[in-house]
């Protein structure tokens, strides 16, 4: 068992008065893919967004409990959200490339961080796009707008953009739900390539997707973590009745 890189203890989240997460305890080991599944509104996306403090943008959110990344509390007053998000990157449901060239999209984080060395930037662009498995498709028009790409290519450019700032953890919030099946399977292949080098946490509505790519799977319902285990066990031999009902399509 490798060491635990991210731990959540007794995490509660309230939208105003409404409790959306009811005491989540969930830990992630270094490297590999963990899928978060569950019916709509179960809190899985909300939970994912607490992990790099993206919920900070929403007014009236209260969070209690602790999330520790390598032993450091992400919600400590001294925590630096900018630094946190460099180490814990995020890919969203809708591909959201910036309206600039593919090249500029990928190096945006680095360039703003002050990196000017052209050779180094070129190298990072190629490496990130290769890792995101989109290099061959875009290498001849790196300086054209990223918005001209297909949805699937845009999403992989967004993954490359996150990889370029070399995070340790990558959060993905239903990254394929806006994409066609072919693009989705390309994204899945991309993630499988990355699982040895990064800790990947993915929210998905697609149970087959979870079973295909995830090492571990966590099942959420009504703001609670019902069960987390090896993906194989969750799908073949779940410990909880609710999990079994959900997996077998009896609700949700």
């Amino acid at each position: 068992m490798s060491e635990e890189i991210l731990t959540t203890q007794d995490l509660h989240l309230y939208y105003g008065e409404k409790e959306a997460l009811k005491g989540i305890n969930l830990n992630f080991t270094d490297k590999g893919i963990t899928a978060l599944i569950g019916p709509s509104g179960c809190g899985k996306s909300t939970y994912l967004r607490t992990l790099n403090r993206m919920n900070d943008l929403i007014p009236n959110v209260t969070i209690t409990g602790t999330i520790k990344f390598k032993g450091q509390n992400l919600y400590a007053p001294s925590a630096d959200t900018v630094q946190i998000r460099k180490e814990i990157g995020m890919v969203f449901q809708q591909p959201n490339p910036f309206p600039f060239s593919i090249y500029d999209n990928v190096i945006y984080g680095l360039r703003i961080a002050g990196e000017k060395d052209k050779e180094k930037l070129d190298a990072v662009v190629e490496k990130s796009l290769r890792q995101a498995a989109v290099w061959d498709e875009v290498k001849d028009h790196l300086h054209e707008s990223a918005l001209a790409l297909s949805g699937g290519q845009q999403q992989r450019v967004c993954i490359a953009r996150v990889l370029a700032v070399s995070p340790e953890i990558i959060l993905l919030d239903e990254p394929t739900s806006a994409l066609d099946p072919v693009s989705s399977s390309q994204i899945e292949a991309t993630l499988l390539n990355l699982r040895h080098d990064y800790t990947i946490i993915i929210v998905t509505h697609n149970l087959q997707q979870a079973s295909r790519i995830a090492d571990r799977t966590a099942f959420f319902m009504n703001g609670e973590l019902i069960e987390v285990d090896q993906t194989k066990n969750i799908f073949m031999n779940p410990a909880q009745k609710q999990t079994e009902d959900y997996i077998s399509g009896r609700f949700g």
Binding site: M54, V82, K86, M90, F92, N96, Y108, G109
Partner: peptide, 18 residues
């Protein structure tokens, strides 16, 4: 400008001002 652009920037570790 869509909210997703702001999220995209922040998620890359850019500050709000950046």
């Amino acid at each position: 400008i869509d909210l997703s652009q702001r999220e995209g920037g922040l998620a890359l570790g850019l500050s709000r001002w950046e």
